[in-house]
Structures are given as structure tokens and as C-alpha cells.
Design a protein around this nucleic acid. Sequence first.
DNA 1: CGGCTTATTGACATACGTCAACTATTGTGG
DNA 2: CCACAATAGTTGACGTATGTCAATAAGCCG
Lengths: 223, 223
Amino acid sequence: MDKLRKSLLFAELTDQSMQRLTVDAVEARFARGDLIVKQGDVPRHLHVVLEGQVGLIGQATDGEETVVELFEPGDVFIAPAVILDMPHLMSVRAVESASIALIPAEAYRTALREDHKLALASTHMLARHWRRLIRQIKDLKLKTATQRLGSYLTSLTPRPMGASTVQVEGERRVLARRLGMTPESLSRAFASLRELGVTGRGKRIEIADVAKLRAYCLEDNLV
Amino acid sequence: MDKLRKSLLFAELTDQSMQRLTVDAVEARFARGDLIVKQGDVPRHLHVVLEGQVGLIGQATDGEETVVELFEPGDVFIAPAVILDMPHLMSVRAVESASIALIPAEAYRTALREDHKLALASTHMLARHWRRLIRQIKDLKLKTATQRLGSYLTSLTPRPMGASTVQVEGERRVLARRLGMTPESLSRAFASLRELGVTGRGKRIEIADVAKLRAYCLEDNLV
DNA sequence: CGGCTTATTGACATACGTCAACTATTGTGG
DNA sequence: CCACAATAGTTGACGTATGTCAATAAGCCG
């Protein structure tokens, strides 16, 4: 269970704290499409992704679904509901086969109260998550669908300019919903970006001029 | 300066901690429209609203602006940037004349590191803020403009059903941008809601049947 | 290779934004 | 306290981005 150490949240904890936190923790496997957390339920565990990818899913009362965030190994998800002991605002679904560490909610809350290092690490984690959401809200409110796709593509390359090739992992539908559009609109957004030098099909996408794409997508340079 | 005690973040601190945190704090007044925090700047202070209302503003590189959140007395804003010591992703503007407490950023970070109670209170604050943003993203991605307005109106009344009168404070433009639409669309959204029993002009709005409105707006019952 | 799922493309519908004109409200100086 | 200007909100006409539905093409896996 010391795979958990890879997560930033637990990296700095003492072995003793870690021990107490994980004594009743278990590892669970989920197949693609499995529901890991159901919106409305009261949290029983803090979840940490060990392998695979999971999606934070918002469900409307009419059955519509959207993807708000994608989490990868090392990421802790739905911590806020656990911290506040309030019903989940979101569901979580495995978008590919995944392995998740389940830490009992009360154990985490107790550890938060008793272990200052954990509380401090939690503020950092929450602050980073907050900024991810803020970025997404800005994108949704200020950019077109095509610009959101372009921004996403530029986020996949470390290069600030010049040419670059990026790997777009995962299903198109999931990416489309994450970016706030339908799969059809995503296809059209890819088509629109072609005239800005974004070529290639499938998972491998080539960007001819990253700086130009960033400018078109209204990308700011904030870290 | 013990107006700060009203904020949940500081309610439980020892006097000694509070003393150290506020020794170099100042209170600043801002007029309507003043920029309090500029997107891209490195945070110098943690901000707490003492009086008035401020808006968290996202700016695109083409000059477009949107309102992401509104903060009221007792609210702490832009804490994540202060915690992480990273550039602000957002600007903050006084939407009405406001008074703000400015706590030096380094003092807050030091206190976070040394005072467990403060770290714990900060996780709660961040968790609550996270849930506000999640709610907003779900609304933006899953609801129409009219439904978002309806949801906002139902959030103003404590009653889950029956008739209710609510006060819509602040300027229409600010509300429109907060809800992710233009002022014109907001006017039309009010007009559309009229046939669902939402009447009245100006600041006082009457809802004939809160439950019916909530159903139309796809409101879930999550706390 | 065949069948199933997923992605793309086309035709069309619609929600929302834009621009402009008009109306209501707020604030201010005489 | 009124008159008037300035600002804010509403309404109408219209354009455009994105969703919807249906058909086709591409990718994936036994």
C-alpha cells in the first residue's frame, strides 16, 4: 500500500501517520464504465488513484452527464466531500480499468485533525484543485469550443513555441464532455484547427506552431 | 481588526495566533469598480471581505471579462494563490464600495505552517469553495441560461416549495456574467421564467411555486 | 475477416450573442 | 424637489456557435 507515497498528499507524512491512515485502507479494482462514487451518497472513503484513469462526472436530474475532471495515478479525488462529511456533488466513473485506494473517511478526518503535516498537504492539494476548476470555468465562459480544444492540446506539450507532436489519450467522447461539448462538436473543432496547423488523426496530433495556437486560443501565460 | 473573527477561517484561532496574523494587517477601502487584485500578479496579501461585495473576475487575453464568484463580508478570497505562492489566475474587483482586510501573504503561509487549527480551518474553507465551483461547472455544462437563472433564484429562498419572494441584489450585468450569459440574455431568461410563475420587476421577484421552478431548473437536492 | 463500437460528416434546429433602438432608473445640480 | 443627464435594463432583428439526428466511415477486438 505504499504506492500511496507517490501521491503528493502523503509524501511528507511520518511512517506512523501513514500507518494509522492506511491500516483499514483497501485497494479496489474497477472495470471501464464502473461507477466508483455516486452523486448524493455520503462519502465513506477518501479515494486515491493507483492505476488507470477515472472521471469526475456531473449528472443532471434529467439524466444528462458531463465530465468535469479526469484523475490519474497519484491524484486524490472527492476530498472536499470527505473533509466536510457532506453528500457527493459528483459521481466518479472509471473511464478505463482502474485501481483505487480506499481510505476510510473517518480515518482521514481524524488524521486531518491530529496530523498537522497532513492538514498542510491537504490545503496545498485543495488549492491546486481549486485552480484547475477556475481555469475550466474561465475556459467555459470566455472561449469557444474550438479554443478550448486548442488550449487543451497546448497543455499537452511542454514547449511554449515551435512545432510539437502530442498524444491525445482516451476516448473522444470523454474528452468532448470534459471540454464542455458534444463528440460531434469536438470533431468539428479538430477540423477547424486544421487551418491553424493542427494536423494528424487519431491519438497522434501535430501542432505546427504552438505559440500561434496559444495566441488563437487566448491562452494566458499563468502557471 | 477583530471584525475578522466573524470569518469562519479565523473563528477558532487562539488570540495569540490571531495577533501574529494581524499584526501587519491593514484595512483598505475600495470604490465601486476598483481593481483589488490583478490577474497575473504574485499575491502579496490574503484578502478578507469586511464590508461590501467583490467579484472574482476572469479576463481573457482579448479583453473579455467574466464574473466567476461574488464574495461577501466574512469571505476569504484568492487563498489558493496565496497558499501556493503562485500568480493569481483571476482579478478581483469591487462591485460595490467595499472594505477589505489585507493580511500579508507570508504571515498567512507561516501561520499555516505553524498553526494546526488554521490549517484545518483552511481545508474546510477550500473544500467549501471547491464545491461552489463544482456546482457552477455543472450548471454551465448541463443547464440552459434560463435554468441557471432559475437555479440562482431558488438558491435565494430557504423554502423548498410553495410561494416565495426573493431579493435580487446587485447589478444585472454582474449577475448575468456570474451566470455565464450577457445582460440581454438575462433579461430574456427572466421573461421566459414568467410563464413558470416568476413575476415581479427590479429587485423583488416573486416565485409562485418553488418546487416547480426547481424541477424545471434540474435542481438536485444536494446540500 | 466480420461484427461492434466509436468517430466523422452532413443537414438542420436552436440557444445564445451582437448590435441597435428604446425605456426605465439612478444620480446630480440648479 | 424637480429637471435633466447619465447609466442601466429591456426588447427586437439578426447572425453564429453549438446541439441534435441520421448516415457513413473508421477503428477495435474476438
